[in-house]
Lab assay of single mutants.
Amino acid sequence: MDTYKLILNGKTLKGETTTEAVDAATAEKVFKHAANEHGVHGHWTYDPETKTFTVTE
Rank of each mutant, 00 (worst) to 15 (best):
F31M: 02
T45G: 06
T19P: 01
G39V: 05
K14F: 11
T54P: 00
K51N: 05
A21D: 01
T50P: 01
P48N: 07
K11G: 08
Y46V: 01
P48Q: 08
L6F: 08
K14G: 05
D2W: 10
A27Y: 00
T45D: 12
A27L: 01
H33W: 10
E20W: 11
V30M: 10
G10Q: 04
G15F: 15
F53I: 01
E20Q: 14
V40S: 03
A24I: 09
F53S: 00
A34F: 15
T50Y: 06
L8M: 13
K5G: 03
E49P: 08
K5D: 03
T19C: 15
L13S: 09
G39A: 05
A35M: 14
E20A: 08
W44E: 00
N36V: 11
V40W: 11
L13H: 14
T52F: 03
D47F: 05
G39C: 06
K32A: 07
I7H: 04
A21S: 06
E16Y: 14
G15E: 10
D47H: 06
T52W: 02
F53K: 00
H33V: 13
E16R: 07
A24T: 06
D47R: 04
E20I: 14
L13M: 14
A27S: 01
G39D: 06
D2R: 09
D23N: 09
A35P: 01
A34P: 01
A34K: 13
E49V: 11
H43W: 13
H38Q: 14
T56D: 08
A25R: 09
W44V: 02
Y4H: 03
A35G: 03
E37N: 09
L6Y: 02
V22N: 09
P48D: 09
T26C: 08
G10R: 03
K5E: 03
A35F: 07
E16T: 11
H43R: 12
H33N: 13
H43D: 14
H33S: 12
L13E: 07
T52M: 03
I7N: 04
T18L: 08
L6E: 03
L8K: 00
H41W: 11
K51H: 07
T18K: 08
K51M: 07
E49T: 12
H41D: 12
D2A: 12
L8P: 00
V40C: 05
H33P: 02
V40R: 02
A21Q: 06
T54F: 07
V22Q: 12
E16M: 13
E37C: 13
H38N: 10
T52V: 07
P48F: 07
A21I: 02
V30P: 00
T45C: 08
N36Y: 13
V55L: 08
T17C: 15
G10I: 09
E57G: 04
F53A: 01
K29V: 11
T56L: 05
T26V: 07
G10E: 03
A21Y: 02
V40E: 02
D2G: 08
T12E: 10
E37F: 11
T56K: 05
T52C: 06
V55W: 03
Y4C: 03
H43A: 12
H38S: 12
D23R: 02
F31Q: 00
T17A: 13
G39Q: 06
F53N: 00
K51C: 04
M1P: 08
E16Q: 10
G10W: 06
K29M: 11
A25P: 08
A25N: 08
T54K: 05
H38T: 08
D23C: 05
T17Q: 14
I7M: 05
V30W: 12
W44L: 03
V55N: 01
A35C: 07
T50S: 10
H43E: 15
E57T: 06
E57P: 06
A34E: 09
D23I: 02
E49D: 13
K14H: 11
T12H: 14
H41N: 12
N9Q: 10
L8C: 14
E28R: 07
E49R: 09
T52D: 00
F53C: 01
Y46H: 01
N9D: 10
D2Y: 14
F31V: 01
T52P: 00
G42F: 04
V30L: 12
W44P: 01
E49K: 10
L8D: 01
E57N: 04
G15Y: 15
L8A: 04
T54V: 07
H41P: 04
H43Y: 13
E28G: 05
H41L: 11
M1E: 08
T19A: 07
D23S: 06
K51G: 03
G10F: 13
G42W: 09
D47E: 10
E28P: 00
K32I: 10
T45I: 08
E20P: 06
E28W: 14
E28H: 09
K5H: 12
G42Y: 04
E28S: 05
V30H: 12
V30F: 14
D47I: 05
G15A: 14
G39N: 10
D2L: 10
